[in-house]
Design a protein around this nucleic acid. Structure first.
Length: 425
RNA sequence: GGAGAGGUGGCUGAGUGGUCGAAAGCGCUCCCCUGCUAAGGGAGUAAGGGUUAAAAGCCCUUCGAGGGUUCGAAUCCCUCCCUCUCCGCCA
């Protein structure tokens, strides 16, 4: 959520910033609601004040043994007017809040212009795409050839956009997760978190998935309003909701491995082949909760932490800065890490690292006590994949494939595979 | 699933219809005293919001959430959520 004060004092500047994303902010409509709110709120508070003052005097008079009847008559008429005005104010504030919850975050000044994926400038590149003396296969054919990756079996038990992994391939997938967690915990100073895979609407509103993107989520039926998490960002970031952290507790660096569940409602027909885009995938997530002054450094650190995982796996990648038209709802700035996939002969997203500044913190009520002011202030939140395990598996399969269809096991993963060096049928 | 207890400020914890936004303690900040340290004394210290260009001031809201009763609710009534204890069931 954006700062309501900023919306009140500089609506035009906010609209200009959001326009870069292609978001149209109806200034006139918002301003009209805001103007109504202002008058009404002042009126309501005046009435409440009158009621309080008179009620207090009744209490005093009663204690003094005086006749309170005339005072009661005086306050009688207040009630109805207050109630009516209050109901109206409540509805107005709800409308304003709904508009605010729908507004994306302000873009940082360094976010490049652009309308889509193709406009994301490359920041840096690491590694060289491997040269094969044969025609490299994609992971779908590789997996099928090995008999270890099975989409038909998954369709039988679930449906489209699910996968079944078997034997050493399933283990390689698990090895990736263990390896990534170990790197972040041992070397990057993260605290490992195990958190719920099912969350409530308040948590999803806190991180920004709700109310706007309900269609992207799997909602559970039943008496509770529960949802499957689309990313560990939701349960982990929300750990600091509705609280005031001590300055010494910051920065908080947390990592968690969870499955992620996405309806992919808007992506019919995209990436239907293979396990690039699934309803269920595993991910190791990185979350930072930091002092506002440190969040831009933290974004660089978090991104670098994710990159280390790929460097050790010796997987070629590049980092792009998401342009205004491609960046996510809650992010002020995002770096995507894209991995080289020989099967597709192009780079594909494997990690998305964002600084959300105070956008999520305001929705969550996540604050810290600033020792300089002694006052609670909003923290900044960041999150990024460190990295997506499903896509990392694909990348390993395609980059480490051999002419006979087998897959070499990256050196850093071999300890997690009982020393296995090659995955074969 | 059954029975009971409880949810109050950064934390612990009093408070059962009116000068209660809330005692006390802890923590924190400032000051005094004490020639280091320790101890002692005093003062201050909830959050969110409105008004304002901003501040001060003034005002409003908040004692798990939402309704209700009342001139007035932390306190009474209803619904819901959560935590704890015991029983049952269960990985």
């Amino acid at each position: 959520m954006l700062d309501p004060k900023l919306l009140r004092t500089d609506l035009a500047a906010v609209a200009d910033n959001l326009a870069r994303r292609g978001f149209v902010l109806d200034q006139a409509a918002y301003q009209a609601l805001e103007d109504q709110r202002k008058g009404l709120q002042v009126r309501v508070e005046q009435l409440q004040n009158q009621r309080n003052v008179k009620s207090k005097s009744i209490g005093k008079a009663k204690a003094a043994g005086e006749d309170i009847q005339p005072l009661l008559a005086e306050v009688e008429s207040l009630g109805d007017e207050l109630k009516a005005a209050d109901t109206q104010l409540d509805a107005l504030q709800r409308q304003i809040r709904d508009l605010q919850l729908d507004m994306p975050n302000l873009l940082h000044e360094t976010v490049p212009d652009g309308t889509g994926e193709d406009d994301n400038p490359e920041i840096r590149r690491w590694g060289e795409p491997p040269a094969f003396d044969f025609e490299p296969a994609d992971h779908t054919d590789l997996g099928a050839g090995l008999g270890l990756l099975d989409f038909e079996a998954a369709a039988k038990v679930a449906g489209a956009r699910f996968a079944v992994l078997r034997g050493p391939l399933a283990r390689l997938h698990r090895a990736l997760v263990q390896y990534m967690l170990d790197v972040h915990v041992r070397e990057h100073g993260y605290t490992e978190i195990y958190a719920p895979y099912i969350v409530n609407a308040a948590a999803l509103t806190g991180t920004g998935q709700l109310p706007k993107f309900a269609d992207d989520l799997f909602a559970l039926g039943g008496e509770h309003e529960f949802y499957l998490i689309p990313t560990a960002e939701v349960p982990v970031t929300n750990l600091v909701r509705d609280g005031i952290l001590d300055a010494e507790q910051l920065p908080l660096k947390m990592t968690a491995h969870t499955p992620c569940f996405r309806s992919e409602a808007g992506s019919h027909g995209q990436d239907t082949r293979g396990m690039i885009r699934q309803h269920q995938f595993e991910k190791v997530e990185l979350v930072h909760i930091v002092r506002p002054a440190e969040s831009w450094d933290a974004l660089e650190e978090l991104t670098a932490n994710a990159e280390v995982v790929l460097q050790r796996l010796e997987l070629p990648y590049r980092v792009v800065s998401l342009c205004a038209g491609d960046i996510g709802f809650g992010a002020a700035k995002t770096y995507d890490i894209e991995i080289w996939l020989p099967g597709q002969q192009r780079y594909r997203e494997i990690s998305s690292c964002s600084n959300c500044v105070d956008f999520q913190a305001r929705r969550m009520g996540a604050r810290w006590r600033n020792p300089d002011t002694g006052k609670p202030e909003l923290v900044h939140t960041l999150n990024g994949s460190g990295v997506a395990a499903g896509r990392a598996l694909i990348a390993v399969m395609e980059n480490y494939q051999q002419a006979d269809g087998s897959i070499r096991v990256p050196a850093v993963l071999q300890p997690y595979m009982d020393g296995l060096q090659v995955v074969t049928a």
